[in-house]
Design a binder for these strands. Structure first.
Length: 321
DNA sequence: GGAATTTGACCGCT
DNA sequence: AGCGGTCAAATTCC
C-alpha cells in the first residue's frame, strides 16, 4: 500500500509541477504531452499496484459495481464515471490543460459531435430578457453547448441525488418526461445571479437502470472566472453519445490526469442544497487525500476495488480516437 | 428572514 | 397540439 500512496504522491507532484509550468508550456504541445504521459504513468503504476493488492484482499463482498450487473454493455462505465466525478469535483486548470492539449493535438474535431451543439458563447442566447410580461428564452437548445454524461447514483446517503460534480446547483424545476419512468430535474448554477453564470444541468435516471443518472450540462460556467467563486469547470472530456449506442462513453483525452490541485472548489459541490447529500468532502487542501478518500469511501465501505473506478486498465488506453 | 425546493402554470419549439 | 424547459408563488428548512 505504501507504494501505491507513493505513486499517487508522485503523480500528484507532477500534476502540481505541470500546473506551475502551464503558462510556459502552453505553446509547447510536445512537452505538455510528455508531462501528461508521465502523470498518466504514475497513476497507472499506482493502479496496477492496487490491483495486485486488491486481488489478494478481494472477497466475495466486493462492492457492487452497478453497471456491471445490470448493463453489461457498458463495461467501462464505472471507471469513467468515477474519474469524471473526481475530475469535475476538482478540476479547473486541468480542464484547461485538456483544452489546450486538445487544441494542440488536433483540430479538436473528436469532441463529441452528436451531443454537442456548439454556439460560440451561447449563454447570452438564453433569452432572459424579453419584451412582454414573462421573459422567455429564445431558442431552446440552439447555440448552447450541451453535454451528456452518465453518473452512478450514490449507493449510500441520498441516492436520489447524483454525485456532486464540483458545482453548486439550485433546482428550479422538475418534470415528468414522456416515455420516461423517472422525472427530470432541472438545475441551474447557484451563482447565476452573482456571476451571471448560465450553466445548467438536467438530471434524470435512466429508464432501464435507476442506478444511473443521465446528466446533461448546458451552458458554461462563468462563475469560476471570479476569484471568489468556488466553481470549477464542468467536464469536457467525458461525453456520452446517447444517440448511437445507448451508453457509449467516449473518453477523449488522457483519462488519468484527473486530479487538479485546486482546493477552490471546496465545499461547493452539492446538488441538493440542504437536506441530504451535502457539501463536498473532497475539496480540501490535499488532493491526494481527497482522491484516496474518494477511492476508499465512495460506493462501499469495503472499498477494496474502488480504484477500478479511477484507473481501469482498459480505460487508461481508451482514448483511441 | 433568507435561501432552497416544490410544483402548477406558462410559453416556445417542433 | 403536445412536449419540454422555465418561471414564480408557495412551501420548507435552517
Amino acid at each position: 500500500m505504501e507504494e501505491v500512496i507513493n505513486s499517487i504522491r508522485r503523480a500528484s507532484e507532477l500534476v502540481q509541477k505541470l500546473e506551475q509550468d502551464l503558462p510556459n508550456l502552453a505553446n509547447q504541445p510536445g512537452t505538455l504531452s510528455l508531462s501528461i504521459d508521465q502523470i498518466t504513468e504514475a497513476f497507472t503504476a499506482a493502479k496496477e499496484k492496487l490491483l495486485l493488492i486488491s486481488r489478494h484482499t478481494q472477497t466475495s463482498e466486493s462492492p457492487p459495481m452497478l453497471l456491471h450487473e445490470t448493463t453489461p454493455q457498458q463495461p467501462q462505465m464505472d471507471a469513467t464515471l468515477m474519474q469524471e466525478w473526481l475530475r469535475s469535483s476538482h478540476a479547473l486548470t486541468i480542464d484547461q490543460l485538456f483544452q489546450m492539449q486538445r487544441a494542440a493535438a488536433m483540430g479538436g474535431r473528436e469532441v463529441e459531435d452528436s451531443e454537442r451543439t456548439i454556439g460560440s458563447e451561447g449563454d447570452q442566447a438564453q433569452g432572459i430578457h424579453a419584451s412582454s410580461s414573462r421573459p422567455r428564452r429564445r431558442s431552446r437548445e440552439a447555440n448552447q453547448e450541451k453535454k451528456k454524461i452518465l453518473v452512478p447514483a450514490p449507493q449510500f446517503g441520498n441516492t436520489e441525488m447524483p454525485p456532486e460534480d464540483g458545482f453548486t446547483w439550485r433546482k428550479y424545476g422538475q418534470k415528468e418526461i414522456l416515455g420516461s419512468r423517472y422525472p427530470r430535474s432541472y438545475y441551474r448554477c447557484t451563482h447565476q445571479k452573482l456571476y451571471e453564470c448560465q450553466a445548467k444541468k438536467m438530471v434524470q435516471r435512466l429508464d432501464h437502470n435507476a442506478d444511473i443518472f443521465e446528466v446533461t450540462y448546458r451552458g458554461k460556467h462563468t462563475c469560476h472566472m471570479s476569484s471568489t467563486a468556488p466553481s470549477s469547470v464542468p467536464p469536457e472530456h467525458i461525453l456520452v453519445d446517447m444517440t448511437q449506442n445507448s451508453n457509449t462513453i467516449s473518453s477523449q483525452l488522457s483519462p488519468s490526469v484527473n486530479l487538479s490541485l485546486h482546493p477552490a472548489s471546496a465545499g461547493a459541490a452539492t446538488t441538493s442544497g440542504r437536506g441530504g447529500a451535502s457539501a463536498s468532502r473532497y475539496g480540501g487542501d490535499y488532493p491526494v487525500v481527497d482522491m484516496a478518500d474518494a477511492m476508499f469511501n465512495s460506493g462501499s465501505s469495503s472499498g477494496n476495488n474502488s480504484m477500478e473506478f479511477l484507473f481501469s486498465p482498459t480505460e487508461d488506453k481508451t482514448d483511441a480516437n
